[in-house]
């Protein structure tokens, strides 16, 4: 009986790589966040790390990279380099000062240009948390962000903390009021932050989206509701 021997040849070259998925936390660190709100944010973002690591481990074909910006009087990178979630070490935020969110959007826009972003990346995920009204010119910064291809295509989520947050401004940022998540108590805030962190997993699948239907590759049905909020989930 003849045996069909296959000569095993080495794969032709060209460096292969998983697709980067950039995830940005933009956190309001103004004075009004001081106390329970800031503590909840710090607690919840830290809590998301193991789940995000597990999600990243489940999909080695996407590299989840984390960055964080704190905005108050001015804005600054807390984690400036895109850091693989496996190496990400959370630095707690501290509250003081104003709400210069426009400056944070401006810093973000600089990082969403191509380059430094790659055109083969997965859609970036940007999560903004805020409890107040902007104290700088946020509108020009949002326009600058939206003028960028990745600014338009990014998955943008806002978490509106408490009753004084500027939901209109947050909707301008997300482009969709359903993605301005309401967090009126610490339990809800933690839930919303946890849900926002799961978006990375939803975005990391390589499935294509026909353009006319690709507003968001998100499962909106999983956004927590009031009924889902349980204090036991938090403390």
């Amino acid at each position: 009986m003849g045996v069909d021997m296959i000569e095993m040849l080495k794969r032709p070259g060209g460096q292969l790589a998983s697709r980067p998925l950039h995830f940005f936390w933009l956190v309001d660190c103004s004075g009004s966040m001081e106390g329970e709100k800031m503590e909840s944010v710090n607690y919840a973002i830290k809590q998301t790390i193991p789940d995000m690591r597990a999600a990243a481990a489940d999909n080695p074909n996407a590299q989840l990279l984390i960055r964080t910006i704190a905005f108050s009087t001015g804005a600054k990178w807390v984690q400036e380099e895109p850091t693989p979630i496996e190496e990400f070490s959370f630095k707690p935020f501290k509250a003081h000062g104003l709400t210069d969110i426009g400056e944070a959007f401006g810093m973000l826009a600089e990082q969403l240009r191509i380059p430094p972003m790659s055109d083969r990346a997965l859609p970036p995920v940007i999560v903004v948390l805020s409890d107040g009204r902007p104290t700088d010119d946020y509108r020009a910064a949002i326009q600058k962000l939206m003028a960028l291809p990745w600014g338009k295509k990014a998955v943008k989520i806002a978490i509106s903390i408490g009753t004084d947050a500027d939901d209109e401004m947050l909707t301008e940022f997300t482009g969709n009021k359903d993605l301005v998540l309401q967090a009126n108590n610490p339990q809800a805030l933690v839930k919303m932050i946890k849900w926002a962190s799961t978006v990375a997993k939803q975005v990391s699948a390589p499935n294509s989206n026909p353009t006319a239907n690709s507003l968001l590759p998100l499962d909106m049905n999983t956004i927590p509701t009031e009924d889902d909020i349980d204090a036991a989930d938090v403390w």
Partner: peptide, 14 residues
């Protein structure tokens, strides 16, 4: 047309 991310044109679009 170069599209970013996971978007594409499709036979299924109008």
């Amino acid at each position: 047309e170069k599209m970013l991310g996971v978007e594409t044109n499709s036979l299924a679009l109008p």
